[in-house]
Write a protein that binds this DNA or RNA. Structure first.
Length: 272
DNA sequence: CAAGACTCCTGTCAGC
DNA sequence: TGCTGACAGGAGTCTT
């Protein structure tokens, strides 16, 4: 399930192999993802040269002079290279083929929660992108921001930091981990947390994401390997997926609750 | 506006 | 062993 570190790793892995190449053909076998793939994608992007890639939240932008391909991996999507003419499997929904007859870029997504869109405008002005909060690893995401946005809010802090309008890229796993590291109870009201504690939380979110990205870097080569599998991280998770097991800090049994249809695991002793 | 429920989809796994 | 059903999960959208 790609979270921001996985998306960043994907981008770093594929960008060097895409820039400067011209699209020759785009095969769309399954246009129904989260949304219908933009019908203009193939006619508008074919023949275009890829100039660079960028990321905003979990959205990847693949830029050309004629427009930008917007890709979201959802929770089961992946982008990777396959040797030309590799027959597609059932969940291989899109192939991007190039004029140089070198490996194709393939999009696979079993659960189809991902998205592939196309815009001729500045992609940062796209409806899905322009309302997003700051990047978690940038200086724009800081205590002042979080504190002012949390003021008066009654939502649980976990739901709050997973809101992409507040800050992007904090998925369920890392929200759980960051709150554990910060010692904050996930159900605590966002507006009822001191500035000092929010400052700790900001640092913990940055630390958790940064560490995950660094680990992702070690598997970069897998992205362009022959198997086409995007090797996931061997994260050591403190709480996520460990409900019922002992807290690594105090030994007490970790508790699981549900918040906003998401599983939350925390330590009732360490997190207050 | 804020908060919470609902929705898409399919692989995985528990239970029978 | 095989089948059924619950569940997970990003994030936009709908409902209250």
């Amino acid at each position: 399930m790609p979270e921001l570190p996985e998306v960043e790793t994907t981008l770093r892995g594929i960008e060097p192999h895409l820039v400067g190449r011209a699209l020759s053909q785009i095969d769309i076998r399954q246009p129904k993802l989260r949304w219908l793939i933009t019908p203009e994608l193939a006619p508008d992007m074919t023949g275009q040269v890829i100039t660079h890639l960028s990321r905003r939240g979990k959205y990847i932008g693949v830029h050309t002079a004629n427009g930008t391909l917007i890709v979201h991996l959802g929770m089961s999507g992946s982008l990777y290279f396959v040797p030309e003419e590799t027959p597609p499997l059932f969940h291989d929904h899109v192939d991007f083929r190039f004029a140089d007859n070198q490996p194709w870029l393939r999009y696979t997504d079993p659960r189809r929660f991902g998205a592939i869109l196309w815009t001729k405008d500045n992609w940062l002005d796209h409806e899905l992108i322009k309302h997003l909060g700051p990047e978690p690893l940038s200086d724009d995401f800081n205590v002042e921001l979080l504190y002012s946005r949390a003021k008066g809010r009654k939502v649980p802090i976990k739901t709050f930091i997973m809101d992409s309008k507040i800050v992007v890229g904090v998925g369920n796993i890392y929200a759980n981990e960051a709150l554990f590291k910060a010692g904050i109870k996930p159900s605590r009201m966002a507006g009822n947390i001191s500035k000092a504690r929010l400052a700790v939380l900001v640092e913990c979110i940055k630390m958790v994401l940064d560490a995950a990205i660094k680990q992702g870097g070690t598997t970069l080569k897998d992205f362009v390997g022959g198997d086409g599998k995007p090797g996931y991280f061997k994260q050591e998770l403190s709480v996520y997926g460990r409900a019922g097991k002992p807290c690594i800090a105090c030994g007490k049994v970790l508790k699981e609750i549900r918040q906003a249809q998401r599983s939350t695991v925390y330590c009732t002793f360490c997190q207050t």
